[in-house]
Design a protein around this nucleic acid. Structure first.
Lengths: 116, 116
DNA sequence: AGGATCGTCAACCGTACGGTTGAATATGCG
DNA sequence: CGCATATTCAACCGTACGGTTGACGATCCT
């Protein structure tokens, strides 16, 4: 399944996957480290990473035992272009963005917003 | 279900629903008119409109027999803000947007891109 | 080699999705 | 009133999703 608007938006429609993307905004991470803040099984996180990967939102590279996950923000461009056609949004409001990240992460135990 | 990033992205993850939004970019429309370009049943379109409505992407107002559907582009703002945090996208490229609309609409019979 | 760690695969479960059809509910019109 | 139009509701079907558990294949370390 090639990355399409379908797969990108579907991938973004899950709070766990959005939280994973926020994590990867900090830094590249191994699958195990991505899974650490979440209360679900490693296998579940692995599935989520597969969905993000097939959507083109992250890339995964195996080095030894460890699979490194890297954010690929470029995949959001098509989706962003599509959305922006529906309204004139003001320039990026980073305060609003950080607030969103905090809200998104409030539900996950053991950590606050990822950017600190 | 209040409009959230979950519901907005999930609503956008379906090509029929994106095509409906593109239709409504032209003008407000009755449910029957929204359904006309599509090959599926009216009930299916009604369901899609319900999903778009609950996501806050459209509003529906009954006037007499007719339910008028209106694009509510403001609901995309939160989602747009969220996405833009992941990359610096250039200003809106309207050419690219029109190209997307054409691709999106190529699959539906009896009409070309909605903006003409 | 042997054991621990990293990650995925496979099978399963419950629920939701996208679609259908047919009946039901309004509303408008002659 | 009585019929046509507009829209939704309800029940159903097949498939996919989000999660689990347990087994499996790699890789590193001693």
């Amino acid at each position: 399944m090639a990355p399409t608007l379908d797969t990108v938006f579907a991938a973004l429609a899950d709070p766990t996957r959005r939280a994973i993307l926020s994590l990867l905004l900090e830094d590249d991470m191994a699958v195990t480290d991505v899974a650490e803040p979440f209360e679900m099984s490693l296998a579940a996180i692995s599935k989520h990473l597969g969905i993000l990967s097939r959507a083109g939102l992250i890339s995964q590279e195996r080095r030894g035992r460890v699979v490194w996950c890297k954010l690929e923000p470029g995949a959001l461009r098509e989706a962003s272009v599509w959305m922006q056609g529906f309204g004139q949004f003001e320039a990026v409001n980073l305060d609003a963005f950080e607030k969103f990240l905090e809200i998104e992460f409030a539900q996950f135990p053991g950590r606050s917003a990822p950017q600190e």
